[in-house]
Amino acid sequence: MTYRRNLARDTGGVTLVEFALVAPVLFLLIFGIFDIGHGLYLRSVLQGAVQDAARGAGLESGRLNQAALDERVMLSVQGVMPFVEEDDIDIVRLNYENFSDVGTPEDFDDTNRNNTYDDTECFTDRNDNGQWDPDVGAGGLGGADDIVYYEVGVRYDRLFPLWSMIGLPHRGLAQATTVMRNQPFGEQAEREAVRICP
């Protein structure tokens, strides 16, 4: 009987049991904070690198230094994520005549009124590529006074095992964009809009 009373009053080992109950939630919270923090830091570094590269690309020498600017973005990202390879980085450059054109689709005659371009409808080819596009932007950096949309996407392996615990993909994606006007180092080129009817 005395043994049972002593056993009921014994609190040794309670801390271990409590820790076993709390530890999974605690580790999940800690890994989550580190994973989110690291992702935010990578996005911040990437946004700064993209802004810097866009400023350099807007100069008259930007077209000649495009590879060097891309390399600087890559080195900035690798400073935070050393295992990111060149194939993990996607760079998109589109140029426009003015800011209001960014993200605007090319005009088309919606003959069947379905609010969607169909292959049989006439359209205005503003980026001179011979096909209808959901964005009027032309590829590349453009020329003097053109507007440039610059986007960099980086696929990276998550550092912490949180992704496997809550069903996230192992690879994360960080993106940064900026829209800037090229320097007025010359006259802005006129863009011709060609009407195409298939």
Rank of each mutant, 00 (worst) to 15 (best):
V73R: 00
M74E: 04
S76R: 05
V77E: 00
Q78R: 15
Q78W: 12
G79W: 14
G79D: 06
G79T: 11
V80D: 00
V80K: 00
V80Q: 01
P82A: 04
F83M: 10
F83I: 10
F83R: 13
V84F: 11
E86A: 15
E86F: 13
I91R: 12
R93S: 06
L94W: 03
L94D: 00
L94P: 01
L94H: 05
N95I: 10
N95L: 10
N95G: 02
Y96L: 07
Y96M: 07
S100G: 13
S100L: 15
S100C: 04
S100Q: 14
D101I: 08
E106F: 09
E106H: 03
D107F: 14
D107T: 11
D107H: 07
F108Q: 01
F108A: 05
D110A: 08
T111W: 08
R113G: 11
N114K: 05
N114V: 11
N114F: 12
N115A: 13
D118Q: 15
C122T: 12
F123H: 03
F123K: 01
T124R: 10
D125A: 08
D125P: 05
R126L: 15
D128F: 13
N129W: 14
G130I: 07
G130W: 10
D133T: 14
D133H: 04
P134M: 11
V136L: 11
V136T: 14
A138M: 03
A138T: 01
G140K: 06
L141F: 10
G143C: 06
D145E: 08
D145N: 14
I147V: 15
I147W: 09
I147R: 01
V148K: 02
Y150R: 04
E151F: 09
E151Q: 14
E151C: 06
E151K: 11
V152R: 00
G153K: 11
V154H: 02
V154W: 03
V154Q: 03
R155P: 03
L159K: 07
P161K: 05
W163G: 00
W163F: 10
M165P: 02
G167M: 12
L168F: 12
P169D: 13
G172I: 07
L173P: 02
Q175S: 13
A176L: 05
A176S: 08
A176G: 08
T177V: 12
T177M: 04
T177K: 03
T178D: 02
T178L: 01
V179F: 10
V179Y: 09
M180W: 09
M180P: 01
R181W: 04
N182P: 01
